[in-house]
Write a protein that binds this DNA or RNA. Sequence first.
DNA 1: AGGCTCATGTAACCGGTTACATGATTAT
DNA 2: ATAATCATGTAACCGGTTACATGAGCCT
Lengths: 183, 183
Amino acid sequence: MSLAHGILGFLNYGEMSGYDLAKAFDSSVKFFWHAQNSQIYKTLATLEKDGFVTHRTITQLDRPNKKLYSITLKGKEELNAWLKATDFGFEANKNPFLMKLFFSSGLDVEEVITRLNNFKSEFETFLTVLGGGVAGSITEYSQNISDCSPMYWQMTADFGAMYAKMCIDWAESCINKLQEVTK
Amino acid sequence: MSLAHGILGFLNYGEMSGYDLAKAFDSSVKFFWHAQNSQIYKTLATLEKDGFVTHRTITQLDRPNKKLYSITLKGKEELNAWLKATDFGFEANKNPFLMKLFFSSGLDVEEVITRLNNFKSEFETFLTVLGGGVAGSITEYSQNISDCSPMYWQMTADFGAMYAKMCIDWAESCINKLQEVTK
DNA sequence: AGGCTCATGTAACCGGTTACATGATTAT
DNA sequence: ATAATCATGTAACCGGTTACATGAGCCT
């Protein structure tokens, strides 16, 4: 249960609907924790069943009704236990791109170079997105926050930027090596 | 099906048992694609059912009997199709450490610093493992290989090293920021 | 007219994890 | 003695993905 903790983390800032949560995930943690809306609704249901959240229904005239979820005391305890628990940074990394590269000897070198170029430009795009959308979200949400949350948000964004730059550098060095092979 | 493709990739080098595959995963791709032996055996069964691999049983006197799996023509086609298919580098990243950091405003700053230090030293350990075990595996396996596979293996190892260094740098910069806050 | 935003979900599936189970041989 | 190596799996579970389903209001 890890999306569950993310949801508790967001609800700890205040009431939110499933739709709000989907947007929040999308505009902030998406790049290190993507969540489908279907999964969010499902997880909210189990969180409620387990007593970590409750909801009240808001009837709206011009829009569909919505359910605003809030975190319970039990939920806050769970969130805190999770935050305090030690865990490992280097766990369970699955990188399909590296997996494929590892076995790429059967491909033409040109094909691998193309793949690496695509990889590189993906991260270049990501860097511009991060500089725009995510940075914007952080300043936007920061206005309603009195604690040091924005600092931690910024750290995760910094991680994203450093990771992207590292990937770009790595892809370039790989491309250079492969171009020497073809000579 | 992604472990399946990794298994096909390994079997493309030659016959292997489930046990061999588990060792191969462990000594090479583990850091970007961890695989449990239970999952390997299960996946081998479905791969065989689908006609991508076959096996022959080797009866051994001093050791348990074993099943040596080999890739079929259909399996090679599948492997090749997978290798040629375009995919995305920045997909489906789940980073529990960043997730927790994102919501860490409820923790004492000292606790977060400790967490970051743990994170950092994990990657320092990883760097030494990579310099030892993985580098050793690459040179070891390279002897039986005539194509350019070892170059690609090295590229994935390089990625691991660059990633680890990036993580260490990032963690240090975070720790510095947090130490200024406590002053 | 067409697409986006708001808003909620269900159903089937699947890849992967955790825990369990067995047992001989070999090296320290 | 004890632990590691070799060797194979099963069963239950669970988190997450894909695809599907609905529908009003608003903006261009």
